[in-house]
Design a protein around this nucleic acid. Sequence first.
DNA 1: CATGAATGAGTCTTCATTCAT
DNA 2: GATGAATGAAGACTCATTCAT
Lengths: 194, 194, 194, 194
Amino acid sequence: MEALLDATARVLTREGYDRASTNRIASVAGVSVGSLYQYFPNKEALVAALVARHNREILELARDALKEVASLDLAAAVRAMVRAAVDAHLVDPALHRIFAEQVPRMGQLAKIEDLERETFLLVRSYLEARRKEISIRDLDTATSILVTTVEALTHQFVINKPDAMDGDRDRFIDEVTRLILGYLAPHRTAKPRK
Amino acid sequence: MEALLDATARVLTREGYDRASTNRIASVAGVSVGSLYQYFPNKEALVAALVARHNREILELARDALKEVASLDLAAAVRAMVRAAVDAHLVDPALHRIFAEQVPRMGQLAKIEDLERETFLLVRSYLEARRKEISIRDLDTATSILVTTVEALTHQFVINKPDAMDGDRDRFIDEVTRLILGYLAPHRTAKPRK
Amino acid sequence: MEALLDATARVLTREGYDRASTNRIASVAGVSVGSLYQYFPNKEALVAALVARHNREILELARDALKEVASLDLAAAVRAMVRAAVDAHLVDPALHRIFAEQVPRMGQLAKIEDLERETFLLVRSYLEARRKEISIRDLDTATSILVTTVEALTHQFVINKPDAMDGDRDRFIDEVTRLILGYLAPHRTAKPRK
Amino acid sequence: MEALLDATARVLTREGYDRASTNRIASVAGVSVGSLYQYFPNKEALVAALVARHNREILELARDALKEVASLDLAAAVRAMVRAAVDAHLVDPALHRIFAEQVPRMGQLAKIEDLERETFLLVRSYLEARRKEISIRDLDTATSILVTTVEALTHQFVINKPDAMDGDRDRFIDEVTRLILGYLAPHRTAKPRK
DNA sequence: CATGAATGAGTCTTCATTCAT
DNA sequence: GATGAATGAAGACTCATTCAT
């Protein structure tokens, strides 16, 4: 039931994980608790499904962004990817924050990391294609560092400045791009966009 | 009571935040619930005290590391700081993970961020002292990016490879150092240690 | 749930307010604590509901008695009202005593006084209708004195002689009636019933 | 320890019976809980002792008032006694209210009624002395009615108008006196004071 | 299939009382 | 005698989960 996931997201962001009871979620969804348990075996599975949906939406964005990136030069490509990361975090920042800060990682919820793995592979294959242009020893290590770094910076940016102006956002993207390019292609100076 | 904080840490890392009841903590500490409430007004305060103690320990390390760094050149200094970050995360990785992933940020527990603020100031004043050697526009932004990046990378490294060999660790530190130096001093090539 | 109120009354009268735990009440009612909290948000609300029900029953009696009183002369009317007060106190004397002596007056339980207010108005309007026959300066004061006096005397009578014979009861009613009439109509001598 | 009783009174009136813990009482008294239990075997005994002390103070007033009453005529005597009742209730109205409304009547606290019994005897012996002037069938019944009535009316007056002006108080005393005289001496009209 | 009343284990917290120092 | 840390039974209340209708 899509409505149940919507309700879960609503309750989660409005009340926090601890105060989000299955009864409240069901009533917000306009169904009975019983129905909730017809579709999800327990609360954890419900939250896990919501996480999965959220991640699917974000991955959609990421894939689209990476497609359009193939034709750009490295600097532009990196900037586009960072921008995509920011966009991804803006899908539902409040929900994202709840996932990051309050949802216990255990059992089925280990799946939260699915997104990271998939992102890892996407970025890794991009870097592999550009291998000649970049100076990297170990592809896996580099990918992991990039993914973690961009994710952390973006997360922190969105959390701390939820209503940043476009100017702020562009400046942020510039800085992160510079950081990444300095790592990937240390000999060229990153060219900030005009 | 120090024993209560120890017990809290034990229960927290073994059972997770949600399963850590005050009664269980008290019994692990070898005292009665009543005694627990004689020293801490409620569960939140108990966890907050543990967080504070943990942070104090980590800040101790960080301050010591920064002291020894004053005489080094930029590259060596950055590497030393990254190494300090790793050491800090090795104080009690499991506990650190619980704090990062499960403890709800509210009320007194907002104090969790005290550590971040302190670290921010420490790093910022270091960068300020070296301003001539680095190419940075905005000090605050740069500091924030560095702190977030190093924290995220270190956290992820310690979580994923809790028993990494010294070799792994050194390689990790090298990479992160390269990332940082590429950002702070884009014109020089980072010199990986021999 | 009517059963819950019955159980509350039972436990309250048998054990007293302090020993009446919600768990005990629920188990006496033959349901689980959870069910209790499905119908009443907290202990206070439960007791308040019981008080309300008790008062409703008593007010029913009082209204009926006052209706039949309209056609009687003053002396007979007063005696009928006193008798009604006694009857009201006999609805559930033990429970009434708990309400009077042990239930803390706070929050929603301020409603305990609803009954007093209603009674006040009932009596006041009766006195107003008979104003010519009685010698009273201030209607509100007189009403308040009468209501308080009759309530206190009746309460004390029922508490101290829970199983008084009809004879005792009639003699008590005579005395109280004499007291009231002496106050309302000092010039006539109260005529004790044959 | 007198200080303990004072502290009990303070805590009782400030916080109510339920929130008055022995620890708080002890700390307000400036001693340790242990000391409290050196003087009183349990909480109930402590409260009972406070009740006893309060009652002793009130009885003092009542006895003094009755002494001075011997020489007055009936009307003046009754008014003096009513006034004494009001004075008694003004000794510590807040504490009196707590006793009346919140302190559970059980065990040693049945002693609360000691005051009523003693008052009963005092009034009864006064009425007996004046038997010729009053028209009463049964002395015990009359005494009981008078004591209950005056107590209830005074209590209610003090509770509802804790800061009544002297004028209000005199008018109240007049009315109660009229009520009593109408009962004791139905043939004479009560003479309100000039 | 849907419902939602019922369940009851488990949570945090309080407080009268004890007893080693 | 005084102290006050320690005790732990008990209480109010929550919520994931079940199941008869």
